[in-house]
Design a protein around this nucleic acid. Structure first.
Lengths: 345, 345
DNA sequence: TTGTACGCGTTATCAT
DNA sequence: ATGATAACGCGTACAA
């Protein structure tokens, strides 16, 4: 690879002049500049990122801290990564994919100690995330996709659960439903203090209250079988519920089976929505489910952009909430006119 | 961050001795070595990767060239990335996520010119992949997940389509089926020369021939609607087909609908398999589909490992084929005893 | 406007 | 066995 010196020789100038010309870091005569640029082009010169980083203390590399895939790991997480990578590239940065091992803190200490990355992007942030605490204490610039319980002045991009729940409730309310239930994420899949689970629960409750419709939660099925059981118990206890929002894809499978087993149909007897699931997944179902699709790419992009902003200058903290997109499928309809009964096949 | 010099001062030795002691690159007296190690530990010294890379011409960073998500982009691609990242970390390397833009070659030229990465990992390799040609010509070490038509001596890890097709055929044959059809990937989704589509087609044909059972292909539905139509046409032309392998998730949705519309049931009237789809997706269906799950993580790991091996020394080319894992679901059964008829509801 | 000289943190070569 | 010193390629004072 050709270096600054090669270009300098070819253009008959000093190395520093080449550097200046190429970076615009000080005035260079138009003629000289042209000669230099031509020489650089001819040699296919590319600045060496290592040397530049060593000198400037800025590598323009971001690390995406990648939690070890627990039970569920899907399209959304993929979108975080691709969104962040795209935005990083557009902003002249690179994205390092950094899978966490058993000891995330040690991993972080190592990673940041290398001098390789300028900042860190955190995924799957817990309500009391130790990684965030560590990074803040260590003075390492970082941003979060998701957020801790008390983000303070830390940059983050997260789902707007209030708006999302509002949209969902408005959707079913406008169809005429008077009572909505939520099947939340299972504790097993994500641990107990998982932010999205907690926030979704709170905001759905609030939205339903504000809209003046009934609301039931408490079930947290994490598999098809649990979804079946949960639906049965839900109908036993609250036969008036005509709309159901489910946060776990597999639980939805069970719900659908349970509905069919009763001789009921979707959407005639039950309006079913998927929450935090991509439209691609919703299309796998029959009928195609209405879904509240998380803005994965958008959040990834925002996270990266915020981090780059933070590295450049220091403005006020950027904290952005983005609602899910409601994609209406064929699983939404008006509630059944009369009380439903079991109609075994 | 503390540097080698800080450690040297603290241990009362020369910088070069510290370097030698820490890297074991030349003999160091036991006592000195202990002093140095202690000083390093006390200062929390971490070698600066940039400086080391600048000097040694090896950054221990791998780039995963990440194609812009086309239509279909799922869990498998995610697994490539996570597998590669994990393996890289275990081997003391880092993984850079590099999304491709409009001009992949220019992107590659840029990336490799930066001196930032030691080698490149290619995903979604085409039969005549220009990126592979470029890298080979440029002398940049790389390995492929997937493979070109003629890989020559390039390292790669790919799906073993022959074994996969063999397993699939054996599965349906052992259930008693005498005729199998394949719905291949649509040309639209992946372009026309997409390796997996072509290899799957060839190998299913060969496996069926070897097993002495009938084989039909030619349909390439890329959506639910196209899947419905394709199934209708298939049944019109080949009413004897009792087993169907589908490579596109969405097409499978249409097939299932078409089967139901005829008043048929899965698996009683049709054995349905998903090919190259993850078990997680297969579980979304009802009944749970039998699937040939691609070894995404494994391939990612292999690709990274091969690349690291190649960077370290140069042995013979490593070319590994890994078969898909057959996960039996509830969509496989013996063929119907009598010819099926339409049984409209 | 341009050139010279130094430092970033590391490894490698040469003396000692 | 250890220490001094020269690169690696770049940015940046400072001098010209």
């Amino acid at each position: 690879m050709s270096s600054l010196r090669d270009v300098a020789e070819r253009a008959q100038v000093a190395v520093s002049t080449v550097s200046a010309a190429l970076n615009g870091t000080r005035p260079v005569a138009a003629g000289t500049k042209r000669r230099i640029e031509q020489a650089a082009a001819e040699l296919g010169y590319r600045p060496n990122l290592l040397a530049r980083g060593l000198q400037s203390k800025r590598t323009r590399i971001l690390a995406l801290l990648y939690p070890a895939p627990r039970s569920g790991f899907g399209l959304t997480e993929m979108q975080f990564a691709t969104g962040a990578a795209e935005a990083a590239r557009e902003l002249g940065h690179h994205l390092l994919l950094s899978p966490e091992n058993a000891d995330p803190i040690e991993e972080l200490r190592h990673l940041t100690g290398l001098g390789l990355v300028d900042g860190v992007l955190l995924m799957e942030v817990g309500l009391d995330d130790e990684r965030a605490a560590f990074l803040a204490a260590a003075g390492v610039p970082f941003s979060m996709i998701g957020r801790t319980r008390d983000p303070g002045s830390i940059d983050y991009a997260d789902i707007d659960f209030a708006a999302t729940a509002g949209d969902a409730v408005a959707h079913v309310a406008s169809l005429g439903h008077r009572s909505l239930a939520l099947f939340n994420l299972s504790a097993g899949a994500y641990g107990d203090g998982y932010g999205p689970a907690i926030r979704a629960g709170e905001e759905f409750a609030a939205a339903a209250r504000a809209a003046g419709i009934g609301y039931v939660d408490g079930h947290r099925p994490g598999s098809a079988e649990e979804g079946r059981e949960a639906f049965e118990r839900l109908m036993d206890a609250h036969p008036d519920v005509t709309a159901l929002a489910v946060m776990d894809d597999h639980a939805a499978v069970g719900v659908i089976a349970a509905v069919a087993a009763r001789g009921w149909r979707i959407p005639d007897d039950l309006t079913l929505m998927l929450v935090l699931s991509s439209a691609r997944v919703a299309e796998m179902f029959h009928p195609r489910l209405t879904t509240l699709e998380p803005p994965g790419t958008e959040l990834g992009r925002l996270g990266a952009r915020m981090l780059v902003d933070r590295l450049s200058g220091d403005g006020p903290p950027q904290q952005r909430l983005v609602p899910c997109r409601l994609v209406a499928g064929d699983s939404s309809a008006a509630p059944p006119p009369k009380p439903r009964e079991r109609r075994p096949a």
